[in-house]
Amino acid sequence: MEIKKLTKEEIAEGLTLNFVNKVNLKKKCSPVMFKAGDEPVGIMECSTGYWVHTSEGYLRDEKGRLIVFDIRACQIARARYLMNHGEEEKRKEAERVLEQRKKKILEKLNIFKNNIEDIRQYTIEGSAMNELMKVFESEDPRVKAKFNRKIANLPKMEAQYEWLVSEFEKGNYNLLLDIMRIEKIPNPITFRLDNEDDMRMLKNAFGKQAIDEAQGDVNKLYARLKVEQMYNM
Rank of each mutant, 00 (worst) to 15 (best):
V165K: 08
E167K: 05
L82P: 09
F19T: 03
M199E: 00
K170Y: 01
E169M: 14
E117K: 14
V23Y: 05
L193Q: 12
L225I: 12
Q215P: 04
G171K: 03
R72A: 13
P155A: 09
K156A: 01
K4N: 10
E213S: 13
G64H: 11
G14F: 03
N114P: 08
S55R: 11
K27L: 14
N148C: 13
R120S: 10
I124H: 03
E107M: 14
T123C: 12
K144L: 13
V20K: 03
Y81H: 14
L193F: 09
T190C: 05
G37E: 11
R101K: 08
C29W: 10
G42Y: 13
K170M: 05
A152C: 03
M201A: 10
T16S: 06
M180G: 06
D178Q: 08
L82A: 09
Y161G: 07
E117L: 13
T7V: 15
A36Y: 04
I71A: 13
E196R: 06
R101D: 02
R72E: 15
M44P: 06
R101E: 02
N115C: 04
V227H: 04
Q121E: 15
G49H: 02
E89Q: 14
Q121R: 14
Q229D: 11
V23N: 10
L132R: 13
N219C: 14
H85M: 08
H53A: 07
N18R: 11
S166G: 00
M129E: 15
M133N: 00
R80V: 12
F168V: 04
A205W: 06
K134W: 12
R200Q: 04
E162Q: 14
A36M: 06
I185S: 01
A73W: 08
L109H: 08
E131K: 15
L202R: 10
L132G: 13
D38L: 08
Q229L: 15
V20N: 00
H53T: 06
R80W: 12
P188C: 07
Q100E: 12
V165Q: 08
R149S: 02
N130G: 00
W51A: 13
M33R: 05
K8G: 11
E162A: 15
E62F: 12
D212G: 05
L221C: 03
R224Q: 10
V52L: 01
E87M: 07
F136N: 08
E131C: 13
D38S: 14
S138Y: 11
I119A: 00
L221T: 01
P141I: 04
L106Y: 03
P40T: 14
Q209T: 14
E131W: 03
I116Y: 00
K144S: 09
T16V: 01
L106F: 06
N21L: 09
G49M: 04
A73I: 09
Y222P: 07
R72L: 13
L6F: 07
Y58S: 02
L15S: 02
I67V: 05
K184P: 01
M230L: 14
A145E: 13
S30N: 10
I189A: 14
L98H: 04
E117A: 14
K103F: 05
K8E: 15
K22Y: 01
Q121L: 15
Q121P: 07
I211Q: 07
K22Q: 02
Q75G: 04
E95Y: 10
Y161N: 04
L6H: 04
A214E: 12
R120Q: 07
R96F: 12
K63M: 11
M180H: 02
F191C: 01
M201V: 09
K102V: 15
S166T: 02
C74V: 10
V68Y: 00
H85Q: 09
L82R: 12
L225T: 11
